[in-house]
């Protein structure tokens, strides 16, 4: 495993990392990089190894054989259950993110083959309100798990989330038991449930469906945490080591099975799925 990556990976501050321009600047190392090379490298900076956030569709293209997949429509619950307003109204925030991402909410799901194994994959889009979990995420996971159950297919979930969507208050918290119940159905049916932890996976997401996988695979350098580093540093009044809450740190502490480079993700996932389902790799 290469160790050139600077970790922990920083949270993605800007989402417009993808541009149509020929050249772009890596937000981690500042190097000018050839866009085409960045994209053919699965959005990993060829200079410094920084892992940029991927959209669900980019993930699907990366993971499914021949980049072929069928999307599953995600349910969208009615907006704004609390009629929430802070400095900006939640309704306006939703509008803004829908415009910038072209999606209705955080999660998207697709079904296709990974190394020949038919698999349902749900992926978070960190660019949509920091991948925060509200009712739409809960309903999406329930629908996707149901789809895996109906197809008797493994379920792969790829979180990237700042945690709860505070603008939905208690509705957000209640997605923890709801999603866990959906995952339990897969376990009872003997279907593999694999979590691919990506940068960042935090808060209520870490404290529910993201930590109950049969196998936990994490992308190199990803921050995986319950409470944020700053909150903990505030509590204990000292600075934490650099690798605190990284994928590597979690593996050392027994919470993650495998740490992979993005370039190895598909083959690692394919092998695990093939072994768990006893489908011969194609």
């Amino acid at each position: 495993m290469a160790n050139s990556c600077k970790f922990p990976q920083k949270p993605h501050a800007k989402y417009a990392e993808v541009s149509d321009k020929l050249w772009m600047t890596c937000r981690e190392c500042g190097d000018m990089i050839y866009s085409k090379k960045f994209h053919s490298n699965s959005k990993v900076c060829p200079s410094c190894g920084y892992y940029a956030a991927m959209t669900p569709v980019e993930r699907f293209e990366l993971l499914f054989d021949g980049a072929k997949f069928e999307t599953i429509e995600m349910p969208i619950p009615s907006d704004d259950p609390l009629k929430f307003t802070d400095k900006v109204s939640y309704a306006d925030r939703l509008k803004k993110y829908r415009k910038s991402t072209g999606e209705q909410d955080v999660v998207q799901t697709a079904v296709g083959k990974i190394d020949g194994v038919e698999t349902v994959v749900l992926c978070f889009n960190f660019a949509f309100m920091g991948g925060s979990m509200g009712r739409a995420v809960g309903e999406g996971i329930m629908k996707a798990a149901g789809e895996a159950l109906a197809r008797k297919a493994p379920f792969v979930l790829i979180p990237a989330s700042g945690g709860a969507r505070m603008q939905e208050g208690i509705n957000s918290l209640m997605q923890m038991p709801r999603t866990l119940m959906a995952i339990e159905d897969l376990k009872n049916a003997g279907l593999p449930y694999i979590v691919v932890l990506t940068n960042p996976t935090t808060g209520g997401v870490t404290a529910s469906f993201a930590m109950v996988g049969d196998v936990h695979i994490a992308e190199k350098g990803a921050v995986i945490a319950f409470a944020g580093r700053r909150v903990i540093e505030g509590t204990i009044g000292e600075k934490l080591p650099d690798d605190f809450q990284t994928a590597e740190y979690l593996r050392e502490h027994g919470m993650v099975d495998i740490v992979v480079e993005r370039s190895e993700l598909k083959s690692t996932l394919g092998n695990v799925l093939s072994l768990l389902t006893n489908v011969k790799k194609k």
């Binding site: 870490t206 404290a207 529910s208 469906f209 993201a210 930590m211 109950v212 319950f226």
Partner: peptide, 9 residues
């Protein structure tokens, strides 16, 4: 010690 995992379980 994995508080997230403990809460989830």
């Amino acid at each position: 010690r994995g508080v997230g995992e403990a809460i989830a379980q």
